[in-house]
């Protein structure tokens, strides 16, 4: 027994080392920088600065954009995942492949492609004009930023919902119909409750990256809609204010932890990707 646990420890060593180096240490650095000033002395100045209206606006905007993107993702992804899960096994594979395909492309290239599509003289307006519909101005608006988020993170919503729906036993739907449920009642009373864990996973997997995203807003929002991710990037890359950047990261982490805690309250703890 003793040798076994000894072996187990040796086996676990690389992973523990990995976790210390790349998870625990960076967190400690974030904490350290958040509560120090440029000279390294203890300070709460960074966090106090974040209460400034300028930064509060950024935080609230980030959360609002992420929330809208998440809700739209859910509304699009659920029917999509449901339709895919009811297709033949062969078709299911093809559809899921199509959903995953954009993720094989680089994030920057995807974002640039969306720019090209949404531009005033872009692909979208060319098509609209050829159909005799007047051009729409989308690029450099908040709609473009949210569209970018939806486009990038939709697969993360489809995947977990599809997973729970495809595992749904058809006989449960038959049992529901047998007991008197119309198709709509079957959906609300059986399908929805049983796919909740997938929805919770999907919402978490879309909201978390959306709220911390950067670059999308710079490229699609014309730098008009500063988000937390962009601000953090700027503090580290341009302003060299590591302390303020770290403080922002810390607050963002807290926001994410709180939203995940809220989401997990709605999860039944089964089938979901968030434990």
């Amino acid at each position: 027994m003793k040798t076994k646990s000894y072996m187990a420890r040796i086996m676990a060593a690389p992973h523990i080392l990995w976790a210390i180096l790349f998870i625990a240490a960076p967190m400690l650095f974030v904490l350290y920088y958040s509560f120090t000033d440029a000279s390294g002395a203890f300070s709460t100045e960074n966090l106090r600065l974040l209460l400034d209206a300028k930064y509060l606006t950024i935080f609230l905007r980030s959360m609002a954009f992420a929330l809208v993107a998440t809700v739209i993702c859910l509304l699009v992804a659920y029917p999509l995942a449901y339709a895919i899960s009811r297709a033949t096994p062969r078709a299911q594979k093809v559809y899921m492949m199509l959903i995953m395909l954009p993720m094989w492309m680089n994030f920057l290239i995807r974002t640039y492609s969306i720019m090209a599509i949404l531009e005033d003289n872009g692909f979208l307006n060319t098509i609209l004009n050829s159909l005799g519909i007047p051009s729409v101005h989308i690029i450099n608006t908040s709609a473009a930023v949210i569209f970018g988020m939806i486009y990038n993170y939709l697969p993360y919503m489809v995947l977990p919902i599809y997973t729970v729906l495809s595992r749904l036993d058809v006989r449960l739907l038959e049992a529901s119909a047998d007991l008197g449920c119309t198709p709509a009642q079957t959906f609300t009373r059986v399908v929805m409750p049983l796919s909740r864990s997938g929805v919770v996973s999907g919402v978490t997997m879309v909201f978390v990256p959306s709220v911390s995203t950067f670059y999308i807003s710079q490229k699609l929002g014309g730098a008009k809609y500063d988000l937390i991710g962009d601000s953090i990037e700027r503090q580290f890359q341009s302003a060299y204010n590591y302390n303020l950047g770290a403080a922002m990261s810390l607050v963002l982490m807290v926001i994410i932890l709180i939203s995940m805690a809220i989401m997990n309250r709605y999860s039944d703890g089964e089938g979901g990707l968030v434990a």
């Binding site: 036993d169 006989r171 449960l172 529901s176």
Partner: peptide
């Protein structure tokens, strides 16, 4: 099925 006055006990039960 939901309009028929019959109910079914399914193979392997299909409980919710």
């Amino acid at each position: 099925p939901y309009k028929r006055p019959v109910n079914t006990v399914f193979q392997k039960y299909a409980l919710f």
